[in-house]
Write a protein that binds this DNA or RNA. Structure first.
Lengths: 183, 183
DNA sequence: TAGCACATGTAATATGTTACATGATTGA
DNA sequence: TCAATCATGTAACATATTACATGTGCTA
């Protein structure tokens, strides 16, 4: 039930439409926190409205409706934020791939690790630009951007460390001859 | 379809039963990579066996069956590891909570951040002990442990940074008086 | 002989993805 | 007027969780 709390949390920042919320998910939450598509967001907003946790505060052209938190919604959000999470239930396909790399021939593993490091460097560059753009208020976007920056720096450093490990493992077994790639 | 690749990846390390795989998920993958329960693992092993990607290589008491990769299974695993992932689809409830903290009164946000930092410190301590225990081979467990160590150090540092931000935001608006907690 | 860890299985429910569907508004 | 973006909705399917269900082997 994290989707509904994610929606409540975004609406706590400012009222928004389903469309805006969908784009905020893509831009801000999807990377490290929570991923959701519009096909899940629109029905959930409907349910939240039925339950009185959000309410429609405006409508525009193209059937656009703007939602805001109700008092009940804010209370539920705060209750959830202060509660102690029971279990994580983390899902991260990139990290899963990295953990399973020993199943590849070392040369291929290195190739994938280089790719992982390069992706991290690119993300760091993008996020370095974003940081500090809006210093006026402490919004969730700033917390997310700083987390992302630190995360991707860690990703790059870990990948370098992992490449060293594969190199060292290769040197310890030089009798196996040059490693054959499967690609 | 990452679950099946996670299973193939674990079996690439060594043959295992559904029960062992379930425990490896809990101990090694669930934290950062992929979470799965036995109720999902057993049926998926059955499907993988039907499709010829894994095979039963032994059975013990209590209906225990040990699975191993087939050649097809290894090929599929390597194909997947070398393919470029399309979209992440990340899910991490702890991080989601942290990003939404601005919805709390600053005092409560700080409390939750302290909790987050403390959790990170504990994990770092545990993982510092694990690291270097099995230096003989480069197994996925070592990649995961090192990633975890670096991740939780980052978590602690980010939490400290975030606490500073909340403190600074509080000082910029001292006219609002002492912040009232909702708890 | 009781309690715990081992070991597997499945049904009902909830959540999430993919694909299909529709149409308005804006800017080149 | 064409393409892109805005804006929402839903049905079919896939994946994941929770709860229920059964029994074995070990050890104190």
């Amino acid at each position: 039930m994290s989707l509904r709390h994610a929606l409540l949390g975004l609406l706590a920042d400012h009222p928004a439409s389903g469309y805006e919320l969908t784009r905020t998910f893509e831009a801000s939450l999807a990377q490290h926190a929570w991923h959701a598509r519009h096909s899940q967001i629109y029905p959930e907003l409907g349910k939240l409205a039925d339950e009185g946790l959000v309410t429609v505060v405006g409508s525009g052209s193209r059937n656009r409706r703007t939602y805001d938190l109700t008092e009940d919604g804010r209370a539920e959000l705060q209750r959830w934020l202060l509660s102690v999470p029971d279990s994580a239930g983390v899902r991260n396909e990139s990290v899963l791939r990295m953990f399973l790399l020993p199943a590849l021939p070392p040369d291929d593993a290195r190739t994938v690790l280089e790719r992982f490091a390069a992706e991290g460097r690119e993300k760091v560059e993008v996020l370095s630009g974003i940081r500090g753009l809006d210093e006026s208020s402490l919004a969730f976007g700033q917390l997310a951007a700083e987390f992302g920056l630190r995360y991707f720096r860690m990703q790059v450093e870990w990948a370098h460390w992992a490449i060293e490990q594969f190199d060292a493992a290769g040197e310890q077994a030089p009798d196996r001859g040059p490693q054959q790639s499967t690609v």
